[in-house]
Structure formats: structure tokens, C-alpha cells
């Protein structure tokens, strides 16, 4: 369980807060972290990984502050940044050096993940494309098996096969008690896997909740034309996704992209009111 308690963080004393009084609770499962550029997604991931210290508030992971330097707690959290440098010649060498610190790392899962991405693990980092580099890093971090895994834009630079493989690997390697937070703009790549979402706007969390919560408050229905009665409608490839107040919990599947767009539209107030009912 991750608890964000009134977190405020600025890059410099006089700078505008990158996170402004952010609060949320995140349970186990796969969570989408969405928001426009500069909303504070990466900063929030840094705070959760203990790599940025909030000026106010705190982030607590399984009862321990994320700023803790206790090795036992540090071993439960890992953040893979969008462009992250892994020292070593190749992912196999890096894994041999780095995995010794993580008790939950599984060699078999690592091998399986590499195979799924079509890599041997011996490809040199220096000669790999950005996409393949990302695949090798994903193959490793998904085998780490840490309690809290954060992935910043994991699908960027991945080809179609890579995205399919990532989706499959997340679905197969995730443990029920694990929390995986995926910060991404490509919501559709992993859409049906998300158990919940945190949606950010202008340094604040606009919405944080589970799929159950959303589907109990809002229904998502596709139609040929926009419905003026709907809370929100958007064009999706020539058809319209309409959002209505849910009549029964879980009657429709959550469309995270539509929800994100709705929260960033001029109907955001109505959507948030509906979610908070």
C-alpha cells in the first residue's frame, strides 16, 4: 500500500511546486499514472522511489517513509525511468551485478522475458537501438519482483511486437500483492490491464481510484453519434464514447483514455462530482 500524504515538492525554493498538496492511496495492482506534460508524473515517481524529498507531507510505502535508507525497505522499490542508464556492457552483465541486491529477482523469469522480447541478453548496450535497450531493461525489471515497481513511459520507443510482449509480460509476471505504476501517454497499450489510475493535472492529483470505483460511478458506452445527455462525449475513430452516471456498479468496462480526456475537458467538474458521489 502506498500512501501519499499532502505532498508538496519544488525544484528550488522559489520555483512553482512540481507537486502541490498531492494525496492518494494506492493498493496492489496495475495503476495508470496519467497527466499532461509537466503535470508532475515523473516527480511523483521520484518521490515514491525516495529520490526526491518533499518539502511538505510524506510518501509511505507499506508503513515506511519512502525516504527511508534502510536496505530492507529499499529492496522493495524500483523505478525504471524513460531513459535510464544501466551500467555494464549488456543486460546480462548488469543483471549479474545488480540482482544480488534483490531477493525477489527470478532468473527464470528474466530468461523468459528476454525470450519474449526476442533478445538474448548478450546484445551490447552501446550498439542497441533505443527500443531494444528499453526491452532489455523491461525484461530485467519485470523479473526483479519488487513490491512496488514504477515504469515511466515504458512503451515509448517500443515497436508493436514489443508493446504486445510487454502487455503479456505484465499480465503474467505480476504478483497479486505487487503494485506496478505505469506513467504513460499511450493508455491504450495496457488499457484492459489497469486496476486503477492516478490522473494528474497542473501538479495535483485530479483523480485517484480503482477500476471498481470508476465503473461504479460512471458508465462508458460507444455510440454512432455524440449524446447530448451524456456527461461527456468524445470522438474515437469515427464513433463516440459517451460517459454517463452508472446505474449499476461495473456495468461497463472503464475506458481510461476517455476518462482522462473527460477530466481534462470543460466537463471535468461534472465528472469529478460524479466520481466523488
Amino acid at each position: 500500500m502506498i500512501e501519499l500524504k499532502n505532498i508538496t515538492f519544488s525544484y528550488g525554493r522559489k520555483a512553482t511546486p512540481a507537486l502541490d498538496d498531492v494525496s492518494a492511496s494506492i493498493g496492489s495492482g496495475l495503476y495508470l499514472l496519467a497527466g499532461e506534460n509537466g503535470a508532475g508524473k515523473t516527480t511523483l515517481l521520484h518521490v515514491m522511489a525516495g529520490l526526491a524529498h518533499p518539502s511538505k507531507g510524506e510518501c509511505v510505502i507499506n508503513g515506511v517513509a519512502s525516504t527511508s535508507v534502510n536496505p530492507e525497505e529499499l529492496g522493495h522499490v524500483f523505478l525504471l525511468e524513460e531513459r535510464m542508464y544501466f551500467p555494464g556492457r549488456n543486460i546480462r552483465e548488469f543483471a549479474a551485478l545488480h540482482s544480488q541486491f534483490y531477493s525477489s529477482f527470478t532468473e527464470e523469469v528474466f530468461e523468459q522475458n528476454l525470450k519474449e522480447f526476442g533478445l538474448t541478453g548478450n546484445e551490447l548496450f552501446s550498439s542497441m537501438s533505443l527500443g531494444n535497450l528499453k526491452k532489455s531493461q523491461l525484461a530485467y525489471v519485470l523479473a526483479l519482483g519488487v513490491d512496488v515497481l514504477m515504469l515511466d513511459e515504458p512503451t515509448n520507443a517500443l515497436d508493436i511486437e514489443g508493446r504486445i510482449a510487454l502487455r503479456k509480460l505484465i499480465a503474467t509476471t505480476m504478483r497479486p500483492e505487487q503494485t506496478v505504476i505505469v506513467a504513460t501517454h499511450n493508455v491504450t497499450d495496457l488499457e484492459t490491464l489497469f486496476d486503477g489510475a492516478l490522473m494528474m493535472r497542473a501538479s495535483r492529483i485530479e483523480f485517484a481510484g480503482t477500476e471498481e470505483l470508476v465503473s461504479s460511478r460512471i458508465a462508458f458506452e460507444m455510440s454512432a453519434s455524440p449524446d447530448p445527455e451524456a456527461l461527456y462525449s468524445e470522438n474515437q475513430m469515427g464513433r463516440y464514447m459517451n460517459l454517463y452516471p452508472a446505474l449499476e456498479p461495473g456495468e461497463t468496462r472503464v475506458d481510461w483514455r476517455a476518462l482522462y480526456s473527460a477530466l481534462h475537458s470543460d466537463r471535468s467538474y461534472e465528472i469529478i462530482s460524479q466520481l466523488r458521489k
Binding site: L74, Y85, F86
Partner: peptide, 19 residues
């Protein structure tokens, strides 16, 4: 420095500051 910005990986390594 290891030929790149490995600070993030190293700062997350589960080892105490004293160690």
C-alpha cells in the same frame, strides 16, 4: 561515473549510506 549517468540505479541500490 561509469561512462553514463548511473546515479539513479546506484541511488536505488538497497545498501545503507554508511555501507
Amino acid at each position: 561515473i561509469k561512462g553514463g549517468d548511473s546515479r539513479m540505479v546506484e541511488q536505488m541500490v538497497p545498501v545503507s549510506p554508511l555501507e
